[in-house]
Design a protein around this nucleic acid. Structure first.
Lengths: 203, 203
DNA sequence: TTAACTCCTATCAAAAAGGATAGGACCTGA
DNA sequence: TCAGGTCCTATCCTTTTTGATAGGAGTTAA
């Protein structure tokens, strides 16, 4: 079974591949960025391609599409250290065969890899509870949908006016949401709210 | 040789320890957070304690002191995935025996660990070039010392007035620095500047 | 010394953000 | 149906931020 691991952290890559190579039937190839991964994928047909989410060239999930193309239809999965749940869903929607948070144990990882190499979609149970009203991210807890949308705007440094345009609302309404969001996040102002969201890996 | 690895990512911990255990003379103990690490450190005398920089309980370099205390003088090193250079220096200043970015290869890691377990300070060459005028962080490039200090305030969501008090300057001066900093970072406003700095791993 | 540079301060003015309060629309569960 | 919730809008007012422009202090290099 051939798998390709792409991660820009040498340490992660080395130890991960060393660990996988302990499995008798697994052969690991590695790459340090998206371009390298695509190159390998074009040379060899892998049973599974593992991409780090925050790796040079990835640019969000854009890199996923490129890798899927280069992999010529072979299963591609996303790994991430921060692992916001929304991204797992997005990755699956974009055609990924699975999503692996780095908080997973190495043993379960091997199982997950076998699973995905067999063509089955894999996402850890924690992420499968998408249907339930899980707090997904402790920070997002207590924030309404609207407030999250506004917070997203804050994180991009948009003004109230710009957020209003984007969400097709009045500026005053945004001001209200900003205020309540700040209160809920225990932030003194919009900048602090944005930093808190960023810190929490949200967005 | 006994070493303790503390990292909240199961995957990193498992593969790292599995890799280290391949070395005939190395025994690895692991912990998932700072408290766990301190507990282990009090039970056993390790030759080296490796702490992830962004791990529950660490709170910057506060956790380093706690671990050093718990380790009763045994060498403690900091690992980090994002690895801003300033933190490496701070870690050493705070008494760490070394600093390991996760961009290191696994082989060099083993060497570094042996080195540090022997009581020698270790920091990768890339970080040793501290004396030279290295851009350390591409974002920080072009920003003056003052501007960095102001940017730090922005990242904490402080108002101009608060930053002025902190730096013992007039508010107008801060306004100027904020403006030029925004221009240099290509940010539209203070919030965006803060996000850019955060994104770059600065602060 | 002059020139160029950074850093600090100042004033004037416009835009944006922050805070309080109030009312209407809508949904949902009792 | 009614009460309670969220969401949207509005007005009024204060504070903060942003922008433009200008000058003084200090350092460094030609």
């Amino acid at each position: 079974m051939k798998i390709l691991i792409a991660d820009d952290h040498d340490l992660v890559r080395d130890t991960l591949s060393a660990f996988m190579e302990n499995e008798p039937d697994i052969q690991v190839t590695t790459a340090a960025d998206l371009d390298g991964a695509c190159e390998e994928a074009r040379k060899t047909l892998f049973d599974l391609i593992l991409l780090d989410y925050s790796m040079p060239g990835m640019n969000g999930l854009e890199g996923l599409s490129k890798a899927m193309e280069a992999g010529d239809g072979r299963p591609v999965a996303i790994m991430s250290g921060i692992a916001p749940k929304a991204i797992a869903q997005d990755a699956l929607d974009a055609g990924a065969i699975g999503f692996l948070p780095k908080t997973m144990g190495a043993k379960s990882l091997v199982n997950a890899i076998r699973f995905m190499a067999a063509g089955e979609t894999f996402v850890p149970v924690k992420f499968m509870t998408a249907e339930e009203a899980e707090p997904e991210n402790p920070i997002a807890k207590g924030l309404s949908q609207r407030e999250l949308e506004v917070l997203s705007g804050l994180c991009r440094g948009l003004s109230n006016k710009e957020i209003a345009r984007e969400l097709d609302l009045q500026e005053v309404t945004i001001k209200l949401h900003v205020k309540t969001t700040c209160r809920k996040l225990n932030a003194k102002n919009r900048t602090q709210a944005a930093m808190i969201a960023k810190e929490a890996g949200l967005f």
